[in-house]
Design a protein around this nucleic acid. Sequence first.
DNA 1: CCGGATCCTTATAGATACTG
DNA 2: CAGTATCTATAAGGATCCGG
Lengths: 227, 227
Amino acid sequence: MTRTYGEGCPIALSLDIVGERWALLVVRELRLGPRRYRDLQEALPGITPAVLSKRLRELEEYGVLHRRELPPPAAARVYELTEWGASLEPVFQALARWGVRSPVLPLTGEVSADSIMLGLRTFFTASDASGDGVSWSATYEIGLGRDVYRLRVDDGRLTELARGPATTAPDVLVRTTKAVWQAVLDGAEPLADAVAAGRMSVTGDRTLLQRLVDAPRKIRPTPAPAG
Amino acid sequence: MTRTYGEGCPIALSLDIVGERWALLVVRELRLGPRRYRDLQEALPGITPAVLSKRLRELEEYGVLHRRELPPPAAARVYELTEWGASLEPVFQALARWGVRSPVLPLTGEVSADSIMLGLRTFFTASDASGDGVSWSATYEIGLGRDVYRLRVDDGRLTELARGPATTAPDVLVRTTKAVWQAVLDGAEPLADAVAAGRMSVTGDRTLLQRLVDAPRKIRPTPAPAG
DNA sequence: CCGGATCCTTATAGATACTG
DNA sequence: CAGTATCTATAAGGATCCGG
């Protein structure tokens, strides 16, 4: 390792490991499972091949991820998080919750389908039962363009979020675009409108879907910088 | 801002704000209260004045901290976190808990007195009452060299940690060095030995102090990188 | 086409000295 | 004390190229 903070503080050590430019975003892209070099390059607009290669080498060396060769016929090289690398999850959660409350810099730009779904998990708060006493459990398959995800909610808790179609028939099946799904999650467009306008197709119990999109509450209190 | 990830992902936004080299460590130094430029420079070995100035300007611009002029006679310029900046605390906690489990890079180097005390808070877990039914509440004043801290534990929860002496007579008063305190916290030296050898002076109930140093459990499971 | 390596340019950080 | 100025070293950005 070249540049080091050289401190005994565990925070500084963490930053020695994942504090370099792009490093944490590379890890972010692996949160939902293994990815190929090409996938990472596409998901990280602006990263150059040299930097991506360097980060992958470093992160492998430090034990955050490892590369694995898929056997034929799928013959491909993929990168995936080690157990320790996957345990960065609380860091991502904390950073995401902090970032959405940024009082100065706005939250603008493209978001990958992965990030949208992970954001759902980050801001997911079991909706309070509100007296109806009905426990909320359901399975979902959400398709955003070509990216498909399966979700499972058990007793109001999001217990599964993975890439790929549902393994059994889901309670709700959704097909839409990234943009529409994000608008609905942000509350910018009511779910009913998106469906009525044909921008989202829903198969199954729509009230279960409504509960899902209501669950994350990305409130942005925007505290005054208190100069 | 010059370099930007340019994404709509809140994680990327957070990294745009505090992801630059040294930025998060500057914030770390302000977790226990305002500091002067000089204090920061001394606490961050290796940072150059130009970089420190730049980070302080940027972090102020983004609303993470603000500078304040203390009125005479204490006439000094200090930097302190905004409310939003202070809400980075979960990020530090997550990074610290992750870093101590690093399977490859070792945790070596100097640690500031502030970081040791904050580490105590990060890894503080109320010791299970273990059947004795005695609720643990106490006040402490810990002196490490010239740095003095006051702590308060209420019902097994660490409710106060601040720079400076206790405001009323503490239940336990400790005077020692950074190195000895850290060795005791790490379990490298038993509390009784440090006291017996005259490396730590304790006034008050020593069993209350034992509970305090036992509270943080910095277990390092060192998961195999699973190559 | 995938998985990078190479080359050149630009931006940022490190080192040191110096000033209001 | 609280920074700025200058110079150098390193890392990142941009484009191209290459082997399997």
